[in-house]
Design a binder for these strands. Sequence first.
DNA 1: AAGTATACCTAAGATTTGGAGGTATATAAA
DNA 2: TTTATATACCTCCAAATCTTAGGTATACTT
Lengths: 114, 114
Amino acid sequence: MNTSSNSSLLKGSLSVMILRLLEDREKMYGYEITQKVKDLTAGEMTITEGALYPALHKLEADGLLTTETQIVDGRTRKYYSLTKTGHTEAAGRIAELAAFLENLNLVLKLKPSM
Amino acid sequence: MNTSSNSSLLKGSLSVMILRLLEDREKMYGYEITQKVKDLTAGEMTITEGALYPALHKLEADGLLTTETQIVDGRTRKYYSLTKTGHTEAAGRIAELAAFLENLNLVLKLKPSM
DNA sequence: AAGTATACCTAAGATTTGGAGGTATATAAA
DNA sequence: TTTATATACCTCCAAATCTTAGGTATACTT
């Protein structure tokens, strides 16, 4: 019965998105990531915090990210950035996702970028 | 530690692939689906049976597919085809996945179809 | 006789995600 | 002044989907 909520992520894509964003931006904090994704997708994609923070913590635990906490305007920000391993892994995982997406398109026979 | 196996599916994409294949083909049986996907992707994508059969059963339970069993060369084949609801739902879910993929590309900033 | 291809299936465990809930500060509105 | 909104972090539970591993059985090839 579930028409499958249009907002839901494909499981596995979130951590790759995080890695990809951090490739471009040096360092970002959690809330910033949610806003950036919302911006990039014109509000169509929402990263929920219940998914984001566990994902960030796992990437950190796996040694791909390091953190640095700052207090800005009285509020705590926890900045994440790629480690050396993180850079390498990011490249690999992004390539892997790209390959998967290509194959997925072959099966779905969707027009390029659609 | 897990470099995330390159063969793994993005969770949620399998059922849409099944629906998409059945839009084109009228009816297919499980084993045929695994081979078709392998064919379309030059062997790069493998649908495991442990994922496929539960997915088929769920689609059937949700009323999107009906089955028809035939015995061919002494072996049982269970053919699946889209119900009327299945056709409608297929269109919706494919469009939804396409929209998600577009947004994902916006975040990943990948070249079209790559 | 044994292995491979065909053809179906299930069960256990891991992973990921969404939703709901919680805490706290700053600022704007009522 | 109180309330709502935006910023900013977090955790727990339940649901869903997948991988791995196992099972059964027939047909064909070696």
